[in-house]
Amino acid sequence: MTDSTPTPLRFLWAVQPPSIAAGCAGGAILGFGVLLAMTAPGDASTIDTVMALALFLQMFLASSGFRQRCLRGHFDPLLAGRLSRWRVAAAHWVVSAGPGLAIWAAIVGLACWVQPRTWPAPATAPALLAVFVVSTVAWTVSLPTVKYAAGSVWILMLLFLAATHRLAALRNVFYQTGWGPSLRAARAVIMCPLLLLSEASAVEPTVIGILAAAAVAAGVIGAVYIVRFDGRLVEVE
């Protein structure tokens, strides 16, 4: 018998695999996309619809949680005696965001099939940034809270914005120039990531830079949370 300690990625994939419901939702989105592509071939809005749905799904999938499971001791075998938890943090992000990113990759394939002569919309900078922002922010928000926390907050936020007719105002900042509007546009994307898809043609490089930096910062905050986590075990009957 040799040292059989599993890698963080293998361990986390076994302990918190994507749920069957998540798999079904991802399959349904792709199936819906294929159906739209067959009924309306060449229609660009097919991919926009599928991307928006996938982004909604990723808000929940990447929001996998950490604190609760850790306090119940589920990660003990992985964390015991470990000098550095950075690899654990990286593996946790991959396991949380991975399924949604795989669905996104399938949508890129679908886009290539629907519009073979144009660069696939899900592989443009604003679209890739949208899925990266959603993956990382949802992951970080859920670490100290609960599973699906980020997705729930985002949905409530979007409902609030829609109900109070503020979505149009958020869209308008994309059509102004300067640092102030760029920062406001980045803030608008954090509140409503779908704007990166709907206003893709108006997204300035400055906004992309700010959002990329914000997403990386969110990821680092999440990783630091895992690295420094030091909680007392809770008893669960």
């Binding site: 003990d76 015991a80 005696g81």
Partner: peptide, 13 residues
Amino acid sequence: TTIRYFGGERTLP
């Protein structure tokens, strides 16, 4: 050195 910790059956996923 390998460190193996077992916190009891309640800590298993």
